[in-house]
Design a protein around this nucleic acid. Structure first.
Lengths: 142, 142
DNA sequence: CCGGATTTGTACGTATGTATT
DNA sequence: GAATACATACGTACAAATCCG
């Protein structure tokens, strides 16, 4: 009988394990994620599986990774209210990779952007969703 | 001399090739993406590389995939304006995978959500960013 | 309706590159 | 410089869903 992946976690299950720890606050923002090696050995899975799990969390904006450093839970910034003066419409979407690279501040994977059209019908402005928020209707109570 | 991946594209380059065709409208919403096999053979790369490229585009909300069917450029919906009555604050972020599954309508990978707090301080409401938008400041001109 | 072909999903092992510690 | 850690890429195999004759 072949015990192919019998009691081993799937990549989505491993992602869920880590996600739960992050959302529960056991792994707070800035905390180190266990390394690929540690995860693959402690769960008895391949490194590819670990990398897919981490990729899932990265796409969800929960973790950030960079070469040579241990992965970390993504930092949370204080968010500034967007100036709504002259705004016609606001959509949200994920930025493309070139768009992310072109932004004035570093935007991590898994961070959506506000797409803001203002009156004078130029191209829309992109604002990263981890640094900006929309105020309620009371934004015009200057 | 070892010609290791000399003229072969990287996964990010392959993603860029497809992305450009999508953004240029050559692959309009709903269009079929070439299959993994076609892409790996026509570019002389491994299937894993192709899958990483597709995963990138999926995270950017540009393509949708499902088992057994050819991948397609993601459909674009008409967006409804969000009712801003009583809204205190609006953030945006990616939904977690459980959150996506729990939503009343199907939300594809790569689609961010509005997180909307209304006055009565219940838990926030999640609205998928591919079906909703924020109107400009003139939203209270009912 | 059935069965094969196609296509995406998942997982393993291995190897090498590159940045950080 | 060595060790560590993530990034990228190849090959292989099988599962699962769909498509199509």
């Amino acid at each position: 009988m072949i015990l192919r992946g019998q009691d081993r976690v799937s990549s989505q299950e491993l992602a869920a394990l880590l996600r739960d720890q992050i959302l529960a606050g056991e792994l707070p923002p800035g905390a180190r994620i266990p390394s690929d090696r540690w995860l693959q050995e402690s769960h008895g899975v391949s490194r590819n599986l670990v990398r897919r799990a981490i990729a899932t969390l990265r796409s969800e904006g929960l973790v950030v990774t960079s070469q040579g450093q241990t992965s970390r839970v993504r930092q949370v910034f204080d968010k500034q209210p967007i100036d709504m003066a002259g705004v016609v419409r606001v959509e949200i979407r994920m930025p493309t990779e070139p768009e992310r690279n072109a932004m004035p501040v570093q935007v991590d994977e898994g961070v959506p952007v506000f797409v803001i059209w203002r009156s004078e019908a130029e191209g829309p402005e992109l604002l990263p969703g981890d640094r900006w928020e929309l105020p309620g209707p009371a934004y015009d109570n200057g």
